[in-house]
């Protein structure tokens, strides 16, 4: 990646890096405390395979499942095979394979993979010099956000896997072709930031939609804990673009990617 040297930097990078490391450690340390809930979550997965709604009792059981998903995501994101995103955008039998909540889960995995594809493409374009000089902070943003999207995809794929369904390793969505085409046309960092902002907003709104339209407790809480992360990505991207970073008092759903966007067979 082409970067500037920033000789006049006036901030302690070591301090900020340490802060980020501390936060990472804090995040990772929260996972082991919920491993014991894995059995409850496995039981809750039975709802997904049967497409049955969970009541409040199911909700409470499912809360454990969310963080357990985080464990799965954290573990799998460290492996080379985790949630890899194919450059081939649409190649799936997804719509025919997944029903009910699992269709939303598959949609979410595909959307996360699309985000990974976008950020991977941005890094590729940067390495080729297509975007001009890329500020190091932008590079860190892309890498951090991309890792989190991989974690999210791994979490959703863990659900599919435990439900006996094929995982989603690409982006079988009706919107993918247009997004990949747009990615191929970016010429600058702001171009990439705008594309990423649209995807982050779409993901955040999709998860907001999912909280009301998924019936399984574990799925609902997984969406609920991922949605704020996508909105945070969007806020930072807006700020970098010079847009007001928190434009809405309420996250809407009009830009949500609906389940019927999962590409048909």
């Amino acid at each position: 990646m082409s970067t500037d040297k920033r000789p006049e930097m006036q901030i302690s990078e070591r301090e900020l890096t340490a802060m980020t490391k501390d936060l990472d450690e804090l995040h990772e340390s929260s996972f082991p405390t919920v491993r014991k809930l894995l059995d409850e979550f496995s039981a809750n997965l039975a709802h997904l395979t049967r497409g049955r709604a969970a009541g409040r009792r199911g909700f409470l059981m499912g809360i454990g499942g969310v963080t357990t998903l985080g464990v799965a995501a954290a573990c799998s994101s460290n492996s080379s095979s985790s949630s890899s995103t194919s450059s081939a955008p649409v190649s799936t039998t997804a719509a025919a394979t997944y029903d009910g909540d699992l269709k939303v889960v598959a949609l979410a995995a595909a959307l996360e993979n699309l985000a990974v594809t976008a950020y991977t493409g941005a890094l590729d374009a940067a390495s080729k010099g297509t975007l001009g000089t890329v500020p190091p902070a932008i590079g860190v943003f892309v890498q951090t956000a991309m890792k989190q999207h991989k974690d999210h995809a791994a979490a959703w794929n863990a659900v599919l896997s435990k439900a006996g369904k094929p995982t989603i390793t690409d982006s079988p969505l009706t919107i993918t072709a247009d997004q990949v085409k747009a990615l191929g046309q970016v010429k600058s960092v702001p171009d990439v930031a705008k594309l990423a902002l649209n995807l982050e907003n779409a993901a955040a709104q999709t998860y907001t939609f999912a909280t009301a339209n998924v019936t399984d407790a574990g799925g609902i809480m997984t969406a609920a804990t991922i949605q704020p992360v996508e909105t945070m990505h969007a806020a930072i991207l807006s700020f970098v673009l010079g847009q007001y970073p928190v434009p809405d008092s309420f996250i809407g759903v009009d830009k949500a990617v609906k389940p019927d966007a999962l590409a048909p067979k």
Binding site: L26, F141, M232
Partner: peptide, 30 residues
């Protein structure tokens, strides 16, 4: 970090420290 002048809209991204790119969203799952 002693750089309040970088709090601007838009920020001068070229001058932002590397870690500033990720400090705003520390958790993959909220």
């Amino acid at each position: 970090g002693g750089a309040p002048q970088l709090i601007a809209l838009p920020p001068d991204a070229a001058k932002l420290p590397d870690a500033a790119g990720g400090v705003g969203f520390p958790d993959a799952f909220f």
